[in-house]
């Protein structure tokens, strides 16, 4: 379990990182927290010729609040986000999701950019960022571009990032007032990747009905899966137990997950409905405080 030989490069600036990437292209891999890349290299499933370490690159780790919106640097550690009062205040969905990502030791090293760029279909953060209508900024030789999280994830471990681009920032728009959120998942053990997880964002309008609604799942498809029909079902209504149950049924009928070693497709479909109902119920109850 030792990696194949590779060359190690440690750029100090983003432009330097980008130009190294541009020079080495597919032969190179960026190293962030290393919590996904290093195991893959140790098992020789990934054999990059060059490893470009972002840990010494300036200006990639930050949390900024601008008019209620959040800007998060790609190299921000998961543990930093989890403990940040700004994030906790503005976006409690993130710490709730982060608490389910592996274990504290992993989150101390792992980064938000790494998790999004790695794009594991069962990972919590991609679903959470998608549910928050996050925007992802990539920086490459042609400059910066920003795309919505929903079009960032293309497939299993595949994103819209070009081989010469660095994921530099995640932007989260301000949430409407009286928004409630909930991240809920079912995993075999604490800290495991989710068998099924869901990120829910719902807002209570002044008339007491639900306005904005987002339901995004992890573990049930190649990318985070948004179920817009379920969102439409709650939006515009005063949701109650009957509505939550209807969402459960709809989710179960809509999703087409695959089975694997840890759970069958049937299991994931059913339990996606259950976590949707439970998370929605909780998120809605939290709109009272939001």
């Amino acid at each position: 379990m030792k990696p194949a030989p590779f060359e190690y490069l440690a750029p100090r600036t983003v432009p330097e990182a980008v130009s190294l990437l541009a020079r080495h292209g597919e032969e190179a891999k960026l190293l962030a927290g290393g919590q996904s890349l290093v195991p893959l290299m140790n098992m020789r499933l990934a054999r990059p010729r060059r490893v470009i370490d972002l840990n010494r690159t300036q200006g990639l780790a930050y949390i900024r609040e601008v008019n209620g919106a959040l800007r998060i640097g790609g190299m921000t550690r998961q543990a930093t986000l989890e403990r940040s009062p700004v994030i906790g205040g503005r976006c409690p969905l993130l710490p709730e999701a982060l608490a389910l990502v592996g274990h504290p030791a992993i989150r101390s090293r792992g980064t938000i950019g790494g998790s999004l760029a790695h794009a594991d279909p069962a990972a919590e953060l991609p679903a959470a960022i998608a549910a928050l209508d996050g925007q992802i900024t990539a920086t490459g030789p042609r400059g910066e571009r920003t795309l919505p999280a929903t079009s960032f994830f293309l497939g299993v471990l595949t994103t819209a990032l070009a081989p010469d681009e660095v994921l530099t920032e995640i932007a989260l728009p301000a949430l409407p007032p009286r928004t409630g959120t909930c991240f809920l998942e079912v995993a075999r053990r604490h800290g495991d990747f989710a068998l099924v997880g869901v990120a829910v964002v719902v807002s209570r309008r002044s008339d007491g009905a639900c306005g904005h609604a987002r339901l995004v799942f992890c573990g049930v498809g190649p990318t985070p899966v948004r179920v817009a029909r379920a969102e439409a079902l709650v939006s515009g209504r005063r949701p109650d137990a009957a509505v939550f149950a209807a969402v459960e049924g709809l989710v179960r009928e809509t999703l087409q997950p695959d089975g694997d070693l840890h759970a069958s497709a049937d299991y994931r479909r059913e339990v996606a409905g259950v976590v949707a109902r439970r998370a929605l119920t909780t998120a809605w109850s939290r709109t009272n405080h939001g």
Partner: peptide, 11 residues
């Protein structure tokens, strides 16, 4: 006894 086993038995 996995969660899947329990669910499929209940089903």
């Amino acid at each position: 006894i996995t969660p899947d086993l329990i669910r499929s038995a209940l089903r």
